[in-house]
């Protein structure tokens, strides 16, 4: 077309549509998925923690009950579930997920936000408590240690080594939880992110190696977060179905 060709010139009323070039999905899909997935998990977790008392089918222990503490009529999940709950609630990935999905701050990039109360971010109650994420990390590390113990015990069938579907699920669960926990941004900082000089001492060089390892896990922190959430629910459901007699655990015992 010649540059001198006459062209149309007209006024187009209205606002331009918002098109995110980095995503082929509609911008409501991610928030909708997060709301549905986290709500379903939340309802399930409340049912397990507050209304269920049994989560052990030898030699498998539900991750909601590890370590197993039984004191009076209080359900065992109550004593342990707070640690992973606070860890996930203050996790940097989940912050993105729930701020976008439940609060619309923002629902998606460049999308207008609802007018409402003055935005304070994480400078005021309750979100200022997200700054204590590392303490939830410390508590979760202790729980992950217990889950490793449970996963090893899950291969012990009355003193004989064996492999059941439950053993495999428990091992997969603790691997995913470890990848999520030790890829955490707070641990990345504690491992070596707080250093300005990685080469200045023997300890700094060792921490640099650790920091690089944590960084590898940290890059896909969101995927670890979802995979471990699903594995926790999946492992618990499997053990619960064994307890109810709905499923039979396929096993190979030496």
């Amino acid at each position: 077309m010649a540059l001198t060709q006459p062209v149309d010139r007209e006024v187009t009323p209205g606002r331009p549509r918002i098109h995110n070039p980095y995503s082929v999905l509609p911008n409501w899909l991610y928030p909708a998925f997060v709301v549905v997935a986290l709500s379903l998990f939340g309802i399930f977790a409340i049912w397990v923690v507050f209304f269920q008392h049994e989560g052990y089918y030898a030699p498998y222990l539900s991750p909601f009950y590890s370590p197993l503490i039984k004191v009076g009529p209080i359900p065992p999940g109550v004593w342990v579930a707070w640690a992973p709950l606070v860890f996930r609630l203050s996790c940097y990935y989940y912050r993105k997920a729930y701020f976008r999905s439940f609060f619309g701050h923002p629902r998606s990039c460049a999308v207008p936000e609802r007018a409402g109360r003055r935005y304070r971010g994480e400078t005021a109650f309750p979100w200022v408590f997200n700054n204590f994420h590392r303490f939830a990390f410390y508590a979760t590390v202790v729980q992950v240690a217990f889950l490793w113990f449970d996963a090893i015990v899950a291969f012990d069938f009355g003193g004989r080594f064996g492999v059941g579907l439950g053993s495999v699920l428990m091992l997969a669960n603790v691997l995913l939880l470890s990848g999520y926990t030790f890829g955490c941004h707070a641990f990345r900082h504690l491992a070596g992110g707080d250093l300005d000089c990685f080469s200045c001492s023997l300890a700094a060089r060792a921490r640099h190696k650790l920091w690089k390892g944590v960084t590898v896990l940290n890059i896909k922190h969101d995927r670890w977060a979802w995979a471990s959430l699903i594995s926790v629910a999946g492992t618990d459901i499997y053990i619960r179905l064994l307890l109810a007699g709905v499923l039979h655990d396929p096993r190979w015992v030496m």
Binding site: F99, H105, Y119, G121, E122
Partner: peptide
């Protein structure tokens, strides 16, 4: 004002 950022990654 770092606390105002809620890490939504846009």
């Amino acid at each position: 004002g770092l606390g105002y950022c809620n890490v939504t990654k846009c």
